[in-house]
Each structure stands twice: as structure tokens, then as C-alpha cells.
Design a protein around this nucleic acid. Structure first.
Length: 496
RNA sequence: GACCCGGUAGCUCAGCUGGUUAGAGCAACGGACUUUUAAUCCGUAGGUCCUGGGUUCGAUUCCCAGCCGGGUCACCA
């Protein structure tokens, strides 16, 4: 941006920036040794009227000048504290310097704590220095506290600008920062939970020559030196199971998956997935583990209250609903015995779009979504999915047309997907080939035959339970936040 | 993808059935003010009315197209 483009607001700040330099002061400092955060300084005053000297730093968020004195509020990550500037305390020169301060500037101050006659803990500033001059005004609103509730006026509320300029959104909205702190604590709790049970965290490729482990359209890129296409992973699954073959008995990964699909309030093209695999365990073991993990996540979120709905009470064991009986009950007849034509007619009746073009497999899935999934509000395990929907899951003991698979639903959304992992390489090859056939028939989301994965499984893969948990959605469920963009720091946006 | 709504000052918004110079609050600038807290008071300045066409004597306003966004619904094992 050239100076010609600067409007009057930016110009005024640039002039103050230059004036600081003219006074021999740097607008951009290297460091500032704080003794207290704002919250710690307020705590240090306690109930007393006078307190110790403190050095605090942060962003000026409010300024009230009164001629030879000024009040301001300084905000840091965790709180805010009032500052009181007096000309007779600061001296002529320093008092003139603080006239060059603007709302939005990052400053550091030294002074003793006292309580004003309205009762607010305040720093009586003895020295102040500029740490970073703000050349562009942040969209601060004004705040007042009415009956203990903070009311904002003229704030920054345009959702588009808030997502596009997240730095500004975070800078002026402590509650948005608090949301992301809670998210971070939840993820830390998930790690602690798995670490405590002997899992090790691993990293597997994001760039993959074949994609698999889920049904989704991938992002495609190209490696120049190797001159090969590479896909951004849609799931971690197949690499993590290679590690089980390799002798790791319990592994997990937290990372981004990428799916080249629509953007809406529950879908972002890149999202955070937790997957874990445990040797010698089956899907029943995984259900127990998922219940415990959710409790740990809920406890962590509850410990960091944010603006949102209360964390739901989670009371294991969660109910279990069998896939086929649930769908059959909804349809009034045995779903698996129905012909494709009958399923199609039922799907059309249920309002499924493009029912005419869907495979039998897809029709079953659509009907289940339409009739069963959306009715599940409290955490519920849906168990024993049909074989044809689950190419990576072991057949169910005693019912080989089904698989030992479950999905966890809560709040009408899928939170987790898990199997007794298929470890029979001959069966796995058959399943891949069936998928390849569907793919050839036009199902873009059907998976491909992964020979390298089959080779790994042929070495011998122990029986294994595996789970994938959508982290964004889990956090949304626990906090009652309804838009995925509000739980992702930098959601995918169309460029400006 | 469908439908609905929106885009006006740095921010939040008003602007009537088309009419002369597009307004307010906050922020900014100048002034007054040594315990204020949405500080107050006086004054000043600040605009590609999203973009491009069209209708009209005249368009921020009406029409068409486009861009960007929000909401709802659908889709996304």
C-alpha cells in the first residue's frame, strides 16, 4: 500500500508513528519483561487499596482522556486491567508521548497498583513504552458491563470479515480466543487419554500415491521431481494399519484429512481427524474406549467455560442400535431382502434425490440416513453395518452378511466410525475388487485396489480394533457450536 | 445445487413510492477537562453507495447479469 492509498485514519496513525521516531523512540520494541499478566496483577492487589509495582503489557482496548490525566484499558491474552496516566506523575515529556498512543497499540507499562474510587483495580502508570504501533485500526467496539454481563456496542460482527480476518476477530473478541483455547485443551486431553493407555502418536503421509480408508473425492496434486500425481489424504487408516503390521500395538494420529467436497456449516475441505488402532482388540473394546475418551474430552471442555451451550452430560454405556433391524423396523420389512427396485422406490418415497441413479449399496445407506441417523440426538452407537458398506471391516461373528462396525451418532451427526479391522488379506482383496467394480460402474467415491496395503497385510496383521473421530464435530457437539467455521481458526474461504 | 436475505464512512447501521449537497453512533482529527469506565461537552474531517450493463431528464434506490457473503433446505457411508 502506498501512502496515497492511506485514508485519514491510517494517516493519523502513521503520523504518530513518525512522531515517535522523531522523539527518538522505537515504534517496535524487541521485548518487554513483564512481572504480571493483567489477571495476575488484579489478583496481586486482592482486596487492598494499594498494591505492589507491576510491569504489564498488552493492547490498548479503550482510552478515556481527561486533559491532564487519562484512563485506558490494557488487554492481554487472559484479561484486561485499567491504566491511569497523570501528567504530574509521568512528567511533561512522557505525558506528551502517551498522546501518541492509539487504541490498538501494544504497550508496556510500569506502575503501582491501586483501587479507584469506583473500586476498579488499576495501574498508576509511572513509565510507559510503545511495543508495537498499530497502523491500522482494529474494529474494537465498546463494552459495558450491565448486571455482570458484558454488552458490546458497535463491534466487529460481519461474519465474512471475521472469518477472513481472523487475526482481527481474535484480537477484539476474547470469547473467540477462549473457544480455541477450549478446543486446544480438548485435544490435549485426547492425547493424554491415549498416551496414558500406552498408545504412541505417529505421523503418516499427507501426500499419498493412492488414497483410501474412506469414501470421498480427493484433492490431486503433482510432485515435480518424481513427476507423479499425489493425493492429499482423505483418511489415515491404511498407513496406521501398516504400523500395526509392523509391530506397534497401539498407535494414533491427529491430523488433517482433505476431502474435495462442498463447504457448509458442518463441512470444511480440510478437517481434523483422530484415528487410533489397537492390536488384539475388537469393536466391542473400541466402544468402551470411545465412551471413556468422550468423557475425558467433555471434562476438558467443561473445565474451560466458553460462550455456548453447556457440555452435554455423557452417561455410558451409550445405547446400541443394530443397523439392519433399525432400518427394517423403519421400513416395515427386512431391508437386506429387498431388491434394488424396491429399495429405490422406498428411497424416492423418503425424498432421497437422484434415487434412480444410486447403487443398491448407496440406497441402503441413504435410507438409513433418512430414517434412522437423523433421529439420534443423544450419543448412540449404530452397530453391525452391512458388508457392502464396509470394505475394511471384519465380517460379524455369526452373521457374515454384516460387519463388526459401529458409528457413534450424537446431535444428529456422525462423531466416530470404527471396526474390528479386516485382517484377512484374501478377503480384503475380494472387497477391494468389489469396490473397484463399483468404481468402474461410476461410483467416484469407491476405493481402489491398494496392492501395497495388501502386501503389508499378507505379512500378517494381528486382530485390531480401530476408530476415527472427527475432532471438529466432537468439539461442536460438546460446545453446542453449530458452525464448523467457528471451531476452525482459518476456515477455507473463496479468495477475496 | 435450490430458495430467501444482504453488500452504503475504519466498525455498526439508517437512507420512504427514483429527485438537488447520501446521514447517525463509535473510531479519527482540533479544543475543554487531574478518579473515568459505552466518560462528557464544543467543533472538524471522512464515501468507487460491491461490479458491469439497462430503463430514465435524473439511479444508492427500479430491472438484468455477475462477484462476494449470510440463512434455510438438499448432498457429502
Amino acid at each position: 500500500m502506498t501512502s496515497d492509498d492511506l485514508n485519514f485514519v491510517l494517516k493519523a496513525r502513521r503520523e504518530k508513528h513518525d512522531a515517535l521516531i522523531a522523539r527518538g523512540l522505537s515504534p517496535y520494541a524487541y521485548a518487554f519483561a513483564r512481572t504480571h499478566t493483567a489477571a495476575a496483577a488484579i489478583a496481586a492487589l486482592g482486596v487492598a487499596d494499594e498494591g505492589p509495582e507491576v510491569r504489564v503489557a498488552g493492547r490498548i482496548v479503550a482510552w478515556r482522556g481527561h486533559g491532564k490525566t487519562s484512563f485506558a484499558h490494557l488487554a492481554d491474552e487472559g484479561g484486561r486491567i485499567q491504566l491511569y496516566f497523570r501528567r504530574d506523575e509521568l512528567g511533561e515529556e512522557l505525558f506528551e508521548t502517551i498522546g501518541l498512543f492509539d487504541i490498538g497499540d501494544v504497550i508496556g507499562v510500569t506502575g503501582t497498583l491501586f483501587r479507584t474510587k469506583t473500586g476498579e483495580a488499576t495501574v498508576r502508570v509511572a513509565a510507559a513504552e510503545m511495543l508495537a504501533k498499530s497502523l491500522r485500526p482494529l474494529p474494537f467496539g465498546k463494552e459495558e458491563t450491565v448486571d455482570g454481563v458484558v454488552v458490546r456496542h458497535s463491534g466487529f460482527s460481519d461474519p465474512e470479515q471475521r472469518y477472513r480476518q481472523r487475526a482481527a476477530d481474535l484480537a477484539v473478541h476474547p470469547d473467540v480466543r477462549a473457544t480455541f483455547v477450549a478446543r486446544s485443551r480438548m485435544i490435549s486431553a485426547l492425547r493424554a487419554f491415549l498416551d496414558a493407555r500406552g498408545f504412541i502418536e505417529v505421523e503418516t503421509p499427507v501426500l499419498q500415491p493412492l488414497y483410501g480408508g474412506a469414501a470421498a473425492r480427493p484433492f490431486l496434486t503433482h510432485h515435480n521431481a518424481l513427476d507423479i500425481p499425489l493425493y492429499l489424504r482423505i483418511a489415515d487408516e491404511l498407513y496406521l494399519k501398516r504400523l500395526i503390521v509392523g509391530g506397534f500395538d497401539a498407535v494414533y494420529e491427529i491430523g488433517h484429512d482433505f476431502r474435495n467436497e462442498g463447504v457448509d456449516r458442518t463441512h470444511n475441505p480440510e478437517f481434523t481427524m483422530l484415528e487410533w488402532y489397537q492390536a488384539y482388540a475388537d469393536y466391542d473394546d473400541m466402544m468402551t474406549l470411545v465412551e471413556q475418551l468422550l468423557l475425558a474430552a467433555a471434562t476438558a471442555v467443561r473445565a474451560h467455560p466458553i460462550v455456548g451451550a453447556p457440555v452435554p452430560a455423557l452417561v455410558p454405556p451409550f445405547p446400541r442400535v443394530a443397523w439392519v433391524p433399525a432400518l427394517s423396523a423403519a421400513l416395515g420389512r427386512d431391508a437386506l431382502a429387498m431388491s434394488a427396485a424396491e429399495l429405490r422406490s422406498a428411497a424416492e418415497h423418503a425424498g432421497v434425490v437422484h434415487a434412480a441413479t444410486l447403487s443398491r449399496t448407496k440406497l441402503l445407506d441413504e435410507l438409513f440416513q433418512a430414517h434412522v441417523e437423523r433421529t439420534l440426538h443423544d450419543p448412540t452407537f449404530v452397530v453391525d453395518y452391512p458388508m457392502e458398506l464396509s470394505p475394511l471391516a471384519k465380517p460379524k461373528r455369526g452373521a457374515p452378511e454384516l460387519t463388526e462396525r459401529f458409528e457413534l451418532f450424537a446431535g444428529g451427526r456422525e462423531l466416530a466410525n470404527a471396526f474390528s479391522e479386516l485382517n484377512d488379506p484374501i478377503d480384503q482383496r475380494r472387497r477391494f475388487e468389489a469396490q473397484a467394480k463399483q468404481r468402474a460402474a461410476g461410483d467416484e467415491e469407491a476405493t481402489v485396489v491398494d496392492e501395497d496395503y495388501l502386501r503389508a497385510m499378507e505379512f500378517g496383521m494381528p486382530p485390531t480394533g480401530g476408530v476415527g473421530v472427527g475432532i471438529d464435530r466432537l468439539f461442536m457437539y460438546l460446545t453446542g457450536i453449530s458452525h464448523i467455521r467457528d471451531v476452525i481458526l482459518f476456515p477455507t474461504m473463496r479468495p477475496e
